[in-house]
């Protein structure tokens, strides 16, 4: 899951970078390109940070979960 978010972020950066590059060529509608850059920023500020919690959970380990006894469930 984490890798999904990270790779998604990679795609969005590529997208933002290409959009800014294309802005100067006039090939595509500027409004569309601005939208793309904004969407990428939203991804990086409002979606990607979720991995911080995911990684801390993964790194803390599963000891507690593995210690849960079946008859306690």
């Amino acid at each position: 899951m984490m890798l999904g978010y990270v790779f998604g972020g990679w795609m969005m950066i590529k997208s933002a970078s290409k959009s800014l590059e294309l802005k100067n060529t006039g090939e595509l509608d500027e409004d569309f390109l601005n939208a793309k850059v904004n969407t990428s920023s939203i991804y990086l500020s409002s979606i990607l940070p979720k991995i911080e919690s995911l990684s801390s959970i993964i790194l803390k380990g599963d000891e507690d979960i593995l210690s849960m006894k079946k008859n306690w469930l």
Binding site: F7, G8, M12, K14, S15, K36, T39, Y43, S46, I47
Partner: peptide
């Protein structure tokens, strides 16, 4: 809406 849009675009790119 905007977070949905942003995630869908990342998903599509991937």
């Amino acid at each position: 809406a905007s977070t949905m849009k942003s995630e869908v675009e990342a998903m599509r790119a991937l």
